[in-house]
Design a binder for these strands. Sequence first.
DNA 1: TAGAGCCTGGACAACGTTGTCAGCGTCGGG
DNA 2: CCCGACGCTGACAACGTTGTCCAGGCTCTA
Lengths: 374, 374
Amino acid sequence: MLDATSSYKPMDSRIPMADRTGHRIVPETTRRTDRFPGTRYGNRPTMKDVAARAGVGLKTVSRVVNGEPGVTPETERRVQEAIEALGFRRNDSARVLRKGRTASIGLVLEDLADPFYGPLSRAVEEVARAHGALLINGSSAEDADREQELVLALCARRVDGLVVIPAGDDHRYLEPEIKAGVATVFVDRPAGHIDADVVVSDNFGGACDGVRHLIAHGHRRIGFIGDMPRIHTAAERLRGYRTAMEDAGIPVADAWMSLGVTDPERVRRAAREMLSGPEPVTAIFTGNNRVTVTVIRVLAEHARPVALVGFDDIELADLLQPGVTVVAQDAAALGRTAAERLFRQLDGTLIAPERIELPTRLITRGSGELPPAD
Amino acid sequence: MLDATSSYKPMDSRIPMADRTGHRIVPETTRRTDRFPGTRYGNRPTMKDVAARAGVGLKTVSRVVNGEPGVTPETERRVQEAIEALGFRRNDSARVLRKGRTASIGLVLEDLADPFYGPLSRAVEEVARAHGALLINGSSAEDADREQELVLALCARRVDGLVVIPAGDDHRYLEPEIKAGVATVFVDRPAGHIDADVVVSDNFGGACDGVRHLIAHGHRRIGFIGDMPRIHTAAERLRGYRTAMEDAGIPVADAWMSLGVTDPERVRRAAREMLSGPEPVTAIFTGNNRVTVTVIRVLAEHARPVALVGFDDIELADLLQPGVTVVAQDAAALGRTAAERLFRQLDGTLIAPERIELPTRLITRGSGELPPAD
DNA sequence: TAGAGCCTGGACAACGTTGTCAGCGTCGGG
DNA sequence: CCCGACGCTGACAACGTTGTCCAGGCTCTA
């Protein structure tokens, strides 16, 4: 569980209660924040304190803080003054408890450090911001249990909605949450065993395009290196590869396909194997950005030129020799579309779950146009 | 304000209250979630509901949910059963209100889509996770007002701590928050007018190293293209440039220095200007990853070879022709160090604010070793 | 078998905010 | 001069959870 490893303790266990004069009891232990006289760790002024200082009622403070009408300018001034003096800041936890909405959404993705997810996350954040919501991120590290743990932690926080890039393939655990009104959109990969909104790229079509491009330039022995086949995108791209090959009447050898973790070591080995032997591949189609980068490194050391088309665009791809031809998907558009759909769910303007597929784009830069070298 | 633009409304404004039988009144309007009979938007079971169904007291449910001792296995089973049946999930807002800690921290950075901040953010998340906390992200877009708005929104959520990559240069607005016990660490750039923990890279030293490297390879007319001078890192790197030049006894021409937004268009123009004229620069030192990428593009079209050293490492830098020599800073280490310090503040094991400087590393790959081409 | 002590369970208050509603004073009109 | 209306203010309950504290039933021992 998330809080099992927590090493900092809830404040109740260390902070004595207020005494009955309304003043606070200062703890004997020396704390970092003792530098600031008159305040104490975790002991913030409340509306009650503000009201007392301004000599008004609790509700009047609330009205001022929320800009509600019905307060005399003079009263408002007094309240504002008290707020400034005490450094009061409304406690949104209490507000949320009362109002029922948190104005925050959760985003669970694989790895925030991956250049594909950064722009996606930023796009979700921008849409959230436009709707006045904050974004809570979590990285699942491609682990189904961790995904579930994160998602449920977010639900416990009562996020209004969830954008999930699934790591697992069974999301029935989300059913009670969705029933209870948590808006949910899956991105990049479909949800498992559950009826929900999904926004994905055209992985199948994109892979078809990429492989056909290689075929059109004369290649027949084309390798495919992709992610673990249990990941939906990887499976779809493999299917695209197979379909393109089949359509061209090219039988696919088992040795040409390598699926597995995108760990550089494995990918490097896979690439080297395809490139050696009596009938080496003359072109490689790579299943995602991480694989592409590793394969580029392998090809840079390889004697013969080998054609390459990669799924996902990568920075500086145009400046390499040759430029790297890619099937680009629009990460920001994925995130934006998903987030917009999420808020339409929250607006109530959406009725039935839908599957939205965003097109991919083949960007030719040279590496895919190399002729077969044999 | 954050919630000014909100288009989805708090639930109280649309959901009628429970009637006195304890059953819920179903609203007339047709909602998406009407698909799920018996439940309604935002209407979740509470511990009270669970207790009623299991035929136990409220506190007993609380004990089961929190794994506290003192519950018969049989009772626990009944409670678990009720939890499952109702799809109960503890409301952390209420919990937070009661306990005073949210087990979440905020991270405000410039742009999550920037490849420099992705790993940093991920590192912060990992540390947070190890301490049982969630991470709330916000992008300031390099705008001081937006930074403040985000930070204060996070404070209103009562995050336990804040990791801030400052956009503005005055953080006195944080004083009441810090006084009230919000742990705070600034990363990448120091805080303005406030005494707080800071974790930065050795921008000055790194820039010195990079420029000295160029000087050592025979360059004297060296250009500097950097970010806006009001950004601390940019100023420090400029200072490193000037110092290295001065130490080598090289007078710096104004035309060699260009500071401003990292917009590709401006950077491109700046680079072209330095490279033209009667006394063009023979080498360029770039102030960050975005500038470096743009300058690489300019140099790729340039007739003469021009030496280049960039601040920040970039992916695939080793595969370009020539490889790009960089002064690398460790974004993940910055994030990790800052987050660890944050939780040490929360543990109470930290006394005084400190400034921590992480070293940079010169990585030579070729572009910095080109001799002057004239 | 009575008394002591332990274990389990539940009633209750409190966390800080917001919605409801009622009270109070003032002002204008009848 | 009285009454209604209106503008402003504040008392109070409720949101869902957890900590405190006490009651009741049990076991164990003398």
